[in-house]
């Protein structure tokens, strides 16, 4: 297999990571919640897609029209019920980060445990568009290409909303300066809840796409949370285009590593990138210094 094909494979994977990271970035960058249970929503959506496909033959892409709004609602509720008390109680941003880390750490084990009870710890896989597709003279699995294209559409939509709508401008203002945003009439609580919910919705979309071409089990959440964290830190907190670029980098790095070394070392690749960022550019590769 030529290197260029490996890199293309990495780009496809990276598009997905970018989507995962954008959702996390909405939750962390805008709503200021470090959600360690983020990957659990991705995992749940993957299982939802799996059951809808195997039981009722629902097309996963269509199934997203069900699971994404559901995730939006669930995350909005979580923010309202679980995060608002912490946001009220915290006096500083550091304190809020600390408390939400603890609360979502607990939530992680609740969701993961519940998923293990409901779905067992076994690896799941379903065959959706597994046939090879020839593109630009290379062969890819059709489901990967579809996942990449869908991720691209969703990511572009999110970017357009953030860039060109009133809602998006308010979100970005909140990410940069919560106090200033409040002064110009942004309802911080309401908007934070919406940003958190949007983040969860993106996680669900990403989870559905993951399920179409990777096998998964209830324990995959931590790994995706970790990767989302790394990508967000690399790309800069609150910087969506940074997330996109960093996500692609992680995907390519991972693809190269699994081709040349071993496919079981994906988290080590993420950590290596994390280390480079920590040592060279602690404010993120594209962050403002």
């Amino acid at each position: 297999m030529p290197v260029i094909e490996v890199i293309f494979g990495g780009v496809i994977l990276g598009g997905l990571y970018a989507l995962v990271a954008m959702g996390f970035n909405l939750q962390y960058g805008v709503a200021r919640i470090v959600n360690l249970a983020y990957g659990e929503f991705l995992m749940t959506a993957a299982f939802a897609a799996f059951w809808m496909f195997t039981l009722f033959g629902v097309n996963p892409i269509l199934g997203m029209f069900l699971s994404v709004p559901a995730a939006f609602g669930a995350n909005w509720l979580i923010y309202r019920v679980l995060m608002t008390p912490l946001a009220r109680r915290a006096r500083t941003r550091d304190q809020l980060e600390g408390e939400t880390i603890l609360a979502t750490f607990g939530l992680l084990f609740v969701l993961r445990g519940a998923a293990t009870i409901a779905f067992t710890a076994n690896d799941r896989y379903y065959d959706y568009l597994g046939e090879p597709l020839r593109l630009l003279g290379f062969t890819f699995a059709a489901n990967r290409v579809l996942a990449f294209a869908t991720a691209g559409v969703i990511a572009t939509a999110v970017w357009v909303v953030l860039q060109f709508t009133r809602f998006g401008v308010a979100l970005r203002a909140l990410a940069i300066d919560p106090v200033g945003a409040q002064l110009v009439g942004v309802d911080v609580r309401r908007l934070s809840a919406l940003a958190f919910a949007c983040g969860g919705a993106l996680a669900a979309a990403a989870g559905t796409l993951v399920s179409t071409f990777l096998s998964f089990n209830p324990a995959i959440g931590i790994e995706f949370t970790m990767k989302a964290l790394v990508v967000v830190i690399m790309g800069g907190i609150g910087n969506m285009l940074g997330s996109l670029a960093a996500g692609l980098m992680l995907g390519v790095a991972e693809a190269l590593c699994s081709y040349y070394v071993d496919s079981g070392l994906t988290l080590a690749v993420a950590y290596a990138l994390f280390l480079i960022v920590l040592v060279v550019r602690p404010r993120g590769l594209f962050g403002t210094a």
Binding site: L107, L108, V110, R112, G113, T116, I117
Partner: peptide, 8 residues
């Protein structure tokens, strides 16, 4: 089976 959930 409920260990992790209840602990959480």
């Amino acid at each position: 089976f409920w260990f992790s959930v209840l602990l959480g």
